[in-house]
Amino acid sequence: MEARVRTPGRMSMSGDDLAGRRGVETDVYDPAEDSRLLADVACEAVSESDLVADVGTGSGYVAATVTAETSARVLGTDLNPHACRRARDAGVEAVRANLVAPFRADAFDVVLFNPPYLPADAAAARDDWMEVALTGGETGREVVEAFLDDVGRVLSPDGYVLLLVSTLTGVDEVVDYAGERGFSTVALADESFPFETLSVLKLVR
């Protein structure tokens, strides 16, 4: 199965100023339709007074866009040191982190996550940072599940998560898993592509 949105190296932001910052093309996931969908929803939802985390910020596109549109403080975190540097170059307050591990309890009003969600394909295994950015283990849900295991800890009492999911990942399975972790879910936006439908889920407790 081909994943149109997540084809590595795909140029989807031509004309955008972020495109000019490309240069480490195999090291950092470039913003694509998934990034744009999450950024659009987040810009509508986030308030200026919110403290926001953009987990797996990659190029920093979502964090930078939300900061520009809402004036909220948005931290960008990534496992990938190249992504952290690129996000910082884009003006994002970057922290190298594994998901939300180094953040205090109740720290954030909003946590954004566009996760690695493709099921791993052994034939396509690359063993590089791009694979880390794209694949979520055999099911496509391993990173999302690890995130859901811990994100409740760092959310303020009224805090919520905006999570991008794909039909390639299994939306019902993600919703069920989130439910087991105490979250109720509502879909805020959907966008269909030839091989997948992307959704942004809002998770609240």
Binding site: R88, R96, N98, A101, P102
Partner: peptide, 11 residues
């Protein structure tokens, strides 16, 4: 370079 590395040592 302005970026705190808060990964556990083994990562």
């Amino acid at each position: 370079d302005g970026i705190p590395n808060l990964l556990p040592p083994d990562m």
